[in-house]
Design a binder for these strands. Structure first.
Length: 264
DNA sequence: TAAATCCTGTCA
DNA sequence: TGACAGGATTTA
């Protein structure tokens, strides 16, 4: 998503902004966010975990988190309506960026340089596809944790960017049972998990995302990675690796999918 | 560390 | 109608 945005709207000016659901703005207030970003050019777009970060002038950042069901759509101005638009940024060149988000968990943020408020993207763990995601630091973060490894993988402070689908898929690829206590993983298992996280994410990005239900790219098109999933929503199987039974359980309140025969 | 919470749509 | 949902924080 960020690569597409970067290619298409870097340099665009945010001309007008509308917030249709006030709680879509996580910080500061809807009024302040609107008045601050109006008229400013987008200098660059980067990503940290699940946050898209828009670099604005004077070191300021406009950030978007899509939540569970949010899509960031780039449309021509006034083009066919999307069903659940919570915010709209009108840009120059007659385009607009829409946050289309049925469940209203998506959030927008505005952060100026030097502010005391610490934005959520600055509290994240290492980027899983960067070389700051090392086996040793990963092992250190897992040690002493008594929670299920599945739950720990969803903790954005341990490693950034994994959600429910990719946590399950990574554990499957690593052959690790989701309810294993994180602190009991052996060094070889931790290294296997680390590389599994990286290949699962790389493959998913290569497939332009996983459209299990609502994910869409900025043109509203689905990804293709849903066809490559090994365990997520594939109960009762059979498992592609061993022919075993894929099971769904609940771990830390989240649906969790794994092969009962080849994940230990 | 689990459950409740914020939300609304979809599907069995 | 109830279960469940790609997230994350707060409360018990």
């Amino acid at each position: 998503m960020v690569r597409d945005l970067r290619a298409r709207i870097t340099g665009r000016v945010i001309e007008d902004v509308e917030i249709y659901w006030d709680r879509t703005v996580g910080y500061p207030s809807p009024d302040r966010l609107v008045s601050e970003i109006q008229g400013r050019p987008i200098r660059g777009i980067t990503r940290r975990g699940k946050f898209a970060l828009f670099d604005m002038d004077e070191g300021a950042t406009f950030a978007v988190h899509r939540g569970m069901t949010g899509s960031l759509l780039l449309r021509n101005r006034g083009e066919a309506d999307d069903r659940f638009v919570r915010a709209r940024l009108g840009l120059d060149a007659d385009v607009e960026l829409r946050l289309d988000d049925a469940r209203k968990f998506g959030r927008l943020y505005w952060r100026k340089r030097g502010e005391t408020w610490v934005p959520p993207w600055e509290k994240l763990g290492p980027e899983p596809l960067s070389d700051e995601f090392q086996s040793e630091t990963f092992a250190h973060r897992l040690s002493k944790r008594k929670a299920a490894i599945k739950t720990v993988l969803l903790n954005q402070q341990i490693v950034a960017g994994l959600g429910n689908i990719y946590a399950d898929e990574s554990l499957f690829l690593a052959g690790i049972h989701p309810t294993r206590m994180a602190g009991t993983l052996l060094p070889a298992e931790i290294e296997r998990l680390r590389t599994s996280v990286q290949s699962v994410l790389s493959k998913a990005i290569g497939g332009r995302g996983t459209t299990f239900s609502t994910y869409r790219d900025i043109d509203g098109e689905p990804g293709s990675n849903q066809h490559a999933l090994m365990v997520f929503q594939r109960q009762p199987g059979p498992c592609d690796r061993c022919g075993g039974r894929i099971t769904r359980i609940v771990v830390g309140g989240r649906g969790t999918h794994f092969c009962i025969d080849c994940q230990r």
